[in-house]
């Protein structure tokens, strides 16, 4: 991944060789991750127990998926504030569809398909709305997704009457939460699979490459003949579809449709992406940065929980970490230039 972003940056600035300390900057976050993990382990040895490591991996897989979704749009200089409410709306919609299909006596397969259809349908609708408003109407991504943020919250709480939606069939939870592929829990397996596909798409397809070009220089992308508007709409649809997948996995975990499931996920996903080194100025980042950032945020909160650091103090620490992460990234960029 870093090769890719470097090649883009190199073309952009006319730079042809790497700076010697570049690998050190790239290795900084992984090193920080290990230091963090060992530091927490020194306070409480349970941090490194196999059960907790599996727990961290599982928790990370949800946030990583959302951070990937966010990264895709951030690459094009956008972001999706509505991601969290989209997750809530999809969760409620999926649960309602399945409860409804069960009540009208359909077999399990139909029920599951109804749930998935409703979930992805709502997610894609939300992405289409964002994409059309941003790309075709030219509204700033912040305002557009702040608008859909409110709309999705309203829809989610109205559909569910503000209460958890019961009636999610056990099979659904068994497949998307309890299930495993060669012993790997479903959530981790799905996220890894999606991560690989997304990475290939970003690195090897015309669509993927054009996201970097649009983010690096939108005007050049348009001059080069890229259908920028169509690509942007697709990008927001992809982002919301990934969010919908995450929402379906989280609904399987809780076993009910939750109107508050998304809560602060929008900002957490942005924080994860940004801490991992995705640039809000566009054109820099990828699956790797999203996963690293999500891992960092998850390990930090898991470690603080295990070492019994007050939840309110955790908010302060997370806030500071986000700022420091971006500051380091900026210093790294300055060095490179």
């Amino acid at each position: 991944m870093s090769d890719l972003e470097l090649s883009v940056a190199a073309k952009d600035t006319g730079q042809t060789r790497r700076l010697p300390a570049e690998w050190l900057w790239s290795a900084m976050l992984p090193i920080a991750l290990v230091v963090l993990l060992l530091g927490f382990a020194a306070v409480d040895s349970r941090v490194l127990s196999p059960a907790n490591l599996l727990n961290i991996a599982q928790q990370t897989s949800y946030l990583a998926l959302f951070a990937m979704a966010q990264t895709v749009v951030i690459l094009t200089r956008g972001f999706d504030l509505a991601l969290g409410p989209t997750v809530s709306m999809v969760s409620v919609g999926t649960a309602l569809a399945m409860a409804g299909a069960t009540a009208s006596g359909h077999d399990t397969t139909t029920v599951l398909l109804a749930g998935l259809g409703a979930g992805f349908g709502l997610g894609i609708a939300c992405g289409l709305f964002n994409g059309v408003v941003i790309a075709l109407l030219g509204v700033n991504p912040f305002v557009a997704t702040l608008g859909s943020y409110n709309i999705a919250i309203g829809v989610a709480t109205t559909l569910s009457a503000g209460r958890p939606v019961q009636g999610v069939p056990g099979t659904f939870s068994q497949i998307f939460y309890g299930g495993n592929i060669f012993g790997v829990p479903a959530a981790i397996a799905i996220t890894v699979a999606i991560g690989i596909v997304l990475q290939l798409m970003l690195a090897r397809t015309v669509f993927g490459r054009s996201l970097y070009i649009i983010g690096t220089n939108p005007r050049a992308a348009a001059v080069a003949g890229l259908p920028v508007k169509r690509i942007l709409v697709l990008t927001y649809v992809l982002c919301s579809a990934l969010a919908a997948l995450g929402a379906i996995m989280m609904t399987a975990r809780t076993g009910s449709g939750e109107p508050n499931l998304g809560g602060s996920l929008s900002l957490q996903a942005i924080a994860g992406a940004v801490v991992g080194g995705t640039s809000l100025a566009g054109g820099r980042g990828g699956v790797g940065t999203a996963v690293l950032g999500a891992l960092f945020v998850t390990i930090l909160s898991n470690g603080m929980n295990l070492t019994r650091i007050d939840g309110y103090v955790q908010m302060v620490v997370l806030g500071a970490i986000v700022i420091i992460g971006v500051l380091l990234d900026r210093l790294r960029l300055e060095r490179r230039q």
Binding site: L267, I270, A271, V274, L280, A281, D310, Y312, V313, Q314, M315, V316, L318, G319, A320, I321, V322, I323, V326, L327, R330
Partner: peptide
Amino acid sequence: FCVAKLKVSGFVVTLGTMSATAGVGLM
């Protein structure tokens, strides 16, 4: 200070101070 001197994006800085400030208030 973070936006003007350290040149960190205003969105991220205030996202960070939002979390920190709310945390202090609750604390």
